[in-house]
């Protein structure tokens, strides 16, 4: 059972929302509300302004809180790919899953049931990119097995520390 998931690089994302629309176009038949959402934030006063953009759909967590919080046990985890998906026939749209999801991924669909990113189930995992990853002009979204993604985030950090004089600690690699 290999766990797949998304890796999102905030330094590359410019908040253009192409991933949102690509997800809508690819899942047109089953999607009534946007599964992937980009948040663009700016803080501070001119000219000391800091901005960041984050494109978040489901992170397909290993021990997904939404799966445990659902009173109808409608959310299940795919064994091979680790993709967390919702079963529409069981879901009643009570949105307890959204209350517990740390990333705010579940969306309330127009059909009265919860809809969420299905990690592009149709697309063979590990063979081709997900719809949002394929469209992202900056290639800020990367999908793959967790080991690959963590290795990648370490490589990016190492590569950055090699030339960046300021030894800024990169998120999550404190213990290395």
């Amino acid at each position: 059972m290999s766990q797949y998931g998304f890796y999102f690089d905030k330094e590359k994302c410019v908040g253009c929302r192409a991933c949102e629309v690509a997800c809508q176009v690819w899942n047109e038949a089953v999607q009534t509300v946007k599964w992937r959402n980009v948040t663009c934030l700016t803080r501070g006063t001119y000219p000391e302004v800091a901005g960041v953009n984050a494109s978040l759909a489901c992170m397909h967590c290993a021990e997904s809180p939404c799966k445990k919080a659902c009173p109808r046990t409608a959310i299940s985890k795919n064994e091979e790919t680790g993709a967390v998906t919702v079963d529409r026939t069981r879901c009643v749209g009570c949105m307890l899953c959204l209350w517990t999801c740390p990333f705010g991924a579940p969306q309330m669909g127009e059909m009265g049931r919860m809809e969420k990113c299905t990690f592009c189930e149709e697309r063979p995992v590990g063979v081709i990119k997900r719809a949002c990853e394929e469209i992202c002009p900056q290639q800020a979204i990367v999908s793959g097995t967790i080991e690959e993604l963590i290795l990648r985030s370490k490589q990016v950090a190492a590569e950055r520390l090699s030339w960046d004089a300021r030894t800024e600690v990169v998120l999550g690699h404190e213990e290395e």
Partner: peptide, 22 residues
């Protein structure tokens, strides 16, 4: 669930919280 998550607004706040963490 529905009254707390306010028609998706709670999700937006959570995403903002994650983004602000970055």
């Amino acid at each position: 669930g529905r009254s707390i998550t306010q028609d998706g607004n709670y999700g937006r706040l959570k995403r903002e919280r994650v983004t602000e963490g970055l």
